[in-house]
């Protein structure tokens, strides 16, 4: 429309130009991570590696391997828990309005707008008091609870799109609250689970504030471990970049495979920011 008079070729030129700029960090990340130690000198940081080497990956893996395990454990369990609970909540809030349910929703939703610094100190003391400090289950509990507002929101909006006729006819067939949920809603909710699943997995995998506040080595998720690795002066740049690639890979793979749903989660969850 606007750009038509500038011409299609100008549009492509601009798009390619911006794409290249967006990909510069990836270029540096990948080329550096495949360089052997002796090629990592500052003057040649933009050059391609002369000898392709995976040495930095094995070094990074040795440092971050256990933390990647922690992150998978944390992100998978907390994603499942928060999505399942969100699916129940969304069903209750969208299809069975009880007196006061219009107040319950904003009360739950509000939780996703607070800066987490404002609950961090009591949270830390609470997690210590129940002896989950410095454990992955402590982080699972935390990420599940603070994930509830967004998963509840996504499922509530998702179920709202399912016609009430379906529910009424299921009721006529003799199904109650749980019968309708199991026979009608749950089978239809698969796309909802994909959207919340991807959204929660990426957010929890990338989460840092809770992780750095509630755990210390060796129980840290990989984001904190990567930060410690890059903060250390003795670690070579190629190892740091390989570590960053390892940290980024799981969410990037999810994004590449299921990007469409990631965008939907983004739009549905965009109140989260």
């Amino acid at each position: 429309m606007v750009m038509r008079r500038v011409g299609q070729s100008a549009t492509y030129t601009l798009l390619v130009f911006f794409s290249l700029i967006f990909l510069v960090p990836i270029y540096v990340l990948l080329t550096t991570s495949f360089k052997p130690n002796n090629e990592v000198d500052i003057a040649h940081m933009w050059a391609l590696p002369h000898h392709f080497s995976l040495a930095s990956y094995s070094a990074a893996w040795a440092q971050l391997g256990p933390n990647l395990g922690n992150s998978f454990y944390l992100a998978i369990v907390a994603t499942i828990l928060s999505s399942v609970i969100g699916a129940f909540n969304g069903y209750a809030l969208s299809k069975w309005k009880f007196p006061g349910s219009n107040i319950v929703f904003p009360i739950i939703l509000f939780g996703m707008f607070i800066p987490y610094q404002s609950i961090l100190i009591p949270l830390l003391k609470f997690i210590q008091a129940i002896h989950l400090y410095n454990t992955i289950p402590g982080l699972i509990l935390t990420n599940t609870i603070y994930g509830l507002p967004i998963t509840t929101l996504i499922f509530r909006n998702f179920y709202a799109g399912i016609p009430d006729d379906l529910i009424e006819s299921a009721q006529i067939d003799g199904n109650g609250y749980w019968g309708v949920f199991m026979r009608i809603m749950l089978p239809l909710a698969i796309p909802g689970f994909v959207v919340t699943g991807i959204w929660q997995f990426t957010s929890i995998w990338n989460e840092f504030l809770f992780a750095v506040s509630l755990t210390s080595p060796p129980h840290q998720p990989v984001t904190v471990a990567l930060q410690n690795l890059s903060g250390s002066d003795v670690v070579q740049w190629n190892v740091q970049m390989a570590g960053a690639v390892l940290t980024a890979l799981p969410t990037l793979i999810v994004y590449i495979l299921l990007g469409r749903y990631f965008i939907r989660g983004l739009l549905a969850g965009s109140v989260k920011g």
Partner: peptide, 16 residues
């Protein structure tokens, strides 16, 4: 290409 950085951790972004 324009959206993929959203999928990354801010720590990765910071390091790079």
């Amino acid at each position: 290409i324009f959206l993929f950085p959203m999928a990354l951790s801010f720590i990765v972004t910071g390091v790079v």
